[in-house]
Write a protein that binds this DNA or RNA. Sequence first.
DNA 1: AAACAATCGTTGACTTTTTCAATGATCCGT
DNA 2: ACGGATCATTGAAAAAGTCAACGATTGTTT
Lengths: 152, 152
Amino acid sequence: MGPQSTEVETPRLAAAKIGSDVGLLLAKLHATGSLLNNKALADYGLRERSFSVLTLACSGLEPTQRELADFLSLDPSQVVSLVDDLEHRGLVKRAQGKQDRRAKIIVSTTEGRRIHNKARAALEVCEETQLAALSEEENVQLRALLKKALWG
Amino acid sequence: MGPQSTEVETPRLAAAKIGSDVGLLLAKLHATGSLLNNKALADYGLRERSFSVLTLACSGLEPTQRELADFLSLDPSQVVSLVDDLEHRGLVKRAQGKQDRRAKIIVSTTEGRRIHNKARAALEVCEETQLAALSEEENVQLRALLKKALWG
DNA sequence: AAACAATCGTTGACTTTTTCAATGATCCGT
DNA sequence: ACGGATCATTGAAAAAGTCAACGATTGTTT
C-alpha cells in the first residue's frame, strides 16, 4: 500500500468543464465528507444530522424545531424524528416555547453535552483529514467563503 | 418586500459554533444550490445528476459508467438508471469500451449536445444567483479551494 | 370578543433515493 | 486454461425525502 491511506489522485474526468461546476464540487466534497463524518459519529450512535441537532441543542440558543428545520434545510417532520431519537436516548429534551406555546424548544441534557463533546472531538479529526490538502489559511478561507455565499 | 427577491438574512442559529462546521456549510450550500439547479433544469427534463452525466458524455473524454460512478460519487446501479433515461431520450449512447469490452463508454448524440448547451446556459445563471454574495474573485477562489480540497 | 386565517409540531401515506447482494460477461495474472 | 477480480445490470430491501392533513395555539380582522 502507499505511504498514506488517504491518498487521492486527480481523476481523469476532472478535466471536463464540469470539473469546475460549483454544484458538482459541493456535492462531491459533501458526499466524501459525510461518509467520513458518519463513520466517525457511529461510535456515539450519531449521524451528521442528529449531531447537528445535538450541537444546536447544546448551543444555549434554545432553538425551536422550526428553526432547526429551516437552518438545517430539513422538513419539519424530519426534525421530529431526529429529536424523538435524541430524546429517547436522554441527550435532549423538549421544553415549551416561551413566547409561543405551540413551539417546542430543544435543550440538551447533561449526558447530551457529554456525548456532544466527545463526538465533536472526533469530528474535528475528520475535518482535518478531509481538508488535509488545504493549508490552515486556506481552511479558514474556505469556511469564510461558504458562510458568505450562504448569508452574505 | 426587499430590493431583491433572493434576499437572505443571517439566521439566529448561525451564531452557534456549528455555524462554522464545514460539513454543515457544505450540506446547506449544496441543498440550496440543488433546489435552484433542479428547478432550472426541469425545463429540459434534466436534474442535477442527469445533467452531470450528460455533461461528461459531451466532454469528449468518453467516460465509462464506472468512471462516472466514481467521479459523481454514485452507486454503479444509479448510473445505469441515469444512462438508461438519457439513452431512451436519445441524448446519449452506450458504446463498447475500447480496451475493455466489459466497460461501456457513454457518448453524447447531436441532440444531447444541443440540449446540453441550453441547459448549461440556464445553470450558469443559477450559479450566479447562488453565489451572488461573492465577488468574481471570491467566486474563483471558492472553486479553486473546493478542487484543491478534493484532489490536492 | 368573536371569527378568521396562519403557524407549530406531529402523524401517516407516498415517492424517491440509497444501499447491497447476486449474476453473466470479460479481463488479468499465473 | 484456470481463478480471482472487475464491469454493467438487475432486483430487493432500507433509508430518506415529500406532502397533505390534523389539533393546538397564535395573531389579525372585524
